[in-house]
Computed example of a mutant assay.
Amino acid sequence: MSQKLAELADPNKVLDFLERQTAADPLNRPILYALGHAYEALARAALQRLERASSAAPYLLAARAYRAAYFGDWVEARRLLLELRQSRGPQPPNTDSLLQYIEGRLAGAQQGGILGGDSEQKVPTPCPDPLPMCSAPTPELREALRQSLEKDDPESLYRQVFTATELGRRAFLSLEGLEDSPERQARRAEVAEQQGDPIEAILHWRKALELAPANLWLKQELARAYLDNQDLDDAEPIVTELLKTAPGSIDVHRLAARLYFESERYNEALPHLLKVAQAEPSDLSYRAALGRTFLVLGQPAEAIPHLEAALEIDQDGSLHIDLSSAYRRLGDRKRADELLQRGLSLAQKANQAVH
């Protein structure tokens, strides 16, 4: 529900609905979870709009720094703020206070190991005390967010990131204070994933599913987490069950496509990849996997349109080289040689970037 609501055209209507529900039942865990995600969706959307704005570089750096700090990545947050300080552009509000706070957290970590404790990993970081919004009442923050949503300049987008993130944190913190629930465990899993701890994430997805064993979405998330961690054997029984209980779900076909493709069981992956490509042709990662599957199965003509479509996401040249192979098998040496050269050039650039 949270994702569907968050994607509606008018974010104010989404928030009005969820806030009314929260006011009527402040202990409603699904509503708190949905409210937190609605605010998170607003923060991400504002960040994406900052990324597209040509004049927003200082505000983008500051917003990314705050998001990094929110999820406990103090080193990255500090790096971004120092980069911002060295830039010639305007210095967004609160950045000096945020940098001071982060420096203190890092100093505390070196002295007493403040990072990495169990409690730190359960929920995102507290609001940095020096920032004015941390002490602002929630209704005041909500009003500030609504006002900023009416504007599209870089500073307003930056304020949207700040206020929406903080309001989301408060909703999730309310959820954390209630008795254990699938929603609380799901949020802990999401935070663990943001913090780069897939094992911790899997633990919480499993706990969430134990609390709601019939929940199909939790089963999908646990299977996805296993796949993200390359635990193919653990993912397979869940995916097999989901294919029986929800055979029409495109999300389930995504999981099955990943499982069989990454297991190199290409004949089994093919029908699921075809369904995903048909339903969502703009998802180029699955188009690339479909093209490669056709190529492995000896069907270069069928592979070409999907590999061609996916070339724009080729970062290391491998898709160009695969497409070159497909054209070569069909006798088009000129096109094959062109693609091979582009692929080798991309591979060289990628290798240089790593080293």
Rank of each mutant, 00 (worst) to 15 (best):
Q100P: 00
P92F: 07
F71V: 14
Q86I: 05
A107S: 12
S148V: 03
S54Y: 06
R29V: 08
A68N: 12
E140L: 15
E120V: 08
L115P: 00
L145I: 11
P132F: 06
S55E: 13
R105V: 03
P124H: 07
L141Y: 04
P137A: 04
L98D: 02
Y59D: 05
C134K: 15
K122R: 14
S87Q: 12
A43P: 00
P126I: 08
S148C: 05
C127E: 00
R67A: 03
G116S: 11
A56M: 02
P58W: 01
L42K: 10
L42W: 04
P132N: 02
L35Q: 11
Q147H: 09
E83D: 12
G113N: 13
Q111S: 14
I31E: 00
Y33R: 11
L149S: 01
P92S: 11
R88P: 01
I102H: 03
L32I: 11
C127Q: 00
Q91N: 12
G117D: 11
Q121V: 00
Y33M: 11
S119N: 10
R78G: 03
G36R: 06
Y39C: 11
G116V: 11
I31V: 15
R49G: 11
A41V: 13
G108R: 06
Q111E: 14
A65K: 08
L42H: 06
A53R: 10
G104D: 00
Q91T: 12
A77E: 06
P132L: 07
R142F: 05
T95I: 13
Y70Q: 12
W74Q: 07
G116A: 13
G89H: 12
Y39S: 03
L61W: 04
P92C: 13
P30F: 07
A136G: 03
W74Y: 13
L82V: 09
Q111P: 08
R142H: 04
A43F: 04
E140T: 15
P139M: 13
E103W: 03
E40D: 07
L80G: 07
